[in-house]
Design a protein around this nucleic acid. Structure first.
Lengths: 235, 235
DNA sequence: GAATATCTTTGACTTAAGTCAACAAGCCTG
DNA sequence: CAGGCTTGTTGACTTAAGTCAAAGATATTC
């Protein structure tokens, strides 16, 4: 939480109500939330928290994106999650009552909403609907993690990449054309591999006529084949 | 949920209060829980649920153990979690409001407590303390999954095995001697590898004087070296 | 307790993916 | 816009770990 600046911000309530975490929470409680929230800014590449830091609160992303990742002793990283505006991170430490299990770094200049643990837990204690929202959110994340474990252990890199491309396709819903929202190095880290391997596999997919590449713009040529690859996990 | 028999069981309340999920929940609410609970028995190898099944409730393990796992199209499995007595599984589907994301099979003859979704959600809605317990439990699991992803992508099999042996050592707290609670095939699946590889690595660790093996009984000879291996992740 | 099924180990082989190194492109930043 | 830093690509090489196959060792079950 270094290099952050606290902002004064007013129409938070509305925004909070639009996040998936707090969707459906009544106005009264939203006010409570906004009362304990702090808006902070942080720059691209700024460290938000590190593994082992005391988890005295969690964050919502207002603007920008954040990567949450594990780091091996020799510096290789595995991205667990890329947090987009409206999403949250760090809740785990709040409810497990422990330190953060991973690192968080801003991918871009960000504006974050910080919710301090004690205050937040107090609010949740008085509001079961809020608690149910949180349970749903954590469950959703657990489900994603399970998929990730599945992919890492059961699928080869081409399979994981294919699955990711299909996911982006759905998310962006822009014809056959899609944009890899991350640098290829970061994407490699998200897929649990290294840039060299990713690069080779992308060219292979292009050579074999599955996709066509222009920088970070990918055109899906054979969605069918891509889907098979994602399904069976092997080339 | 095939091949299960519903039992009538009375002193459930006490037992529920002793599970980690419901520890600290007041008697009143425990009665509520026991009111909606169904005790079921299932035999070793019985399928409890499969990926995609509608998640209309979740389970606590009363006796026996259950494995939760993902399955690749060609039948390879990755164990996500081995559930021991007093622990729960399947909650994710309840709160995400979706189908089960994984398979669950009894490792031994089991006695399970089933909590139907609708009734359970109703109870949680009226009891924030219960909700906080659940949030803590899910957070805990999320943390474990994060560790697992970390291990799968950042550590080689010897490192994962070493970490597991150290974990067992702590859990069993029985001098240097420990018991691998799973068949080696199952352990391989938990570590994200295959029996052949596990077998080779176990002999290697023995040959190099890290451990000594008698069937499923392992004696840790050089805990220091094992710890290094688990830390750096490479041989 | 014999018969069968399941688990474990070992060997020879293949292969996906990591490492190291060099170079080419971008892209900030001054 | 020029230099330097980060990012991406390609090639040659190494290696961890998977596959296939066969034999031994345990368990289960009838």
């Amino acid at each position: 939480m270094v290099n952050m600046v606290v902002d004064k911000d007013s129409p938070l309530v509305e925004w909070l109500g639009a996040t998936s975490l707090f969707a459906g929470v009544e106005g009264e409680h939203l006010w409570g939330l906004s009362g304990i929230a702090m808006v902070v800014s942080c720059k691209r590449r700024a460290n938000i928290f590190s593994e082992g830091d005391p988890g005295n609160g969690f964050y919502l992303v207002k603007e920008g994106r954040v990567k949450v990742f594990m780091l091996s002793p020799d510096g290789k990283e595995q991205i667990l999650h890329v947090i987009e505006p409206g999403e949250s991170f760090g809740e785990v430490a709040v409810f497990a009552g422990q330190s953060f299990p991973a690192h968080a770094v801003a991918l871009e200049n960000c504006r974050l909403v910080f919710l301090p643990r004690e205050d937040f837990v107090a609010l949740v204690s008085g509001n079961p609907a809020l608690a149910l929202n949180l349970l749903a959110a954590l469950s959703q994340r657990l489900r994603q993690f399970a998929k990730m474990i599945d992919a890492l252990s059961l699928k080869e890199v081409p399979g994981r990449l294919a699955a990711h491309l299909l996911y982006l396709g759905e998310k962006q819903a822009a014809g056959n054309r899609l944009h890899l929202e991350l640098s290829k190095t970061q994407l490699a880290s998200l897929l649990g591999t290294i840039p060299e391997t990713l690069s080779r596999i992308l060219s292979r997919l292009q050579r074999d006529g599955f996709i066509s590449i222009e920088g970070a713009e990918i055109t899906v040529i054979d969605q069918q084949k891509l889907a098979e690859l994602a399904e069976i996990g092997k080339f």
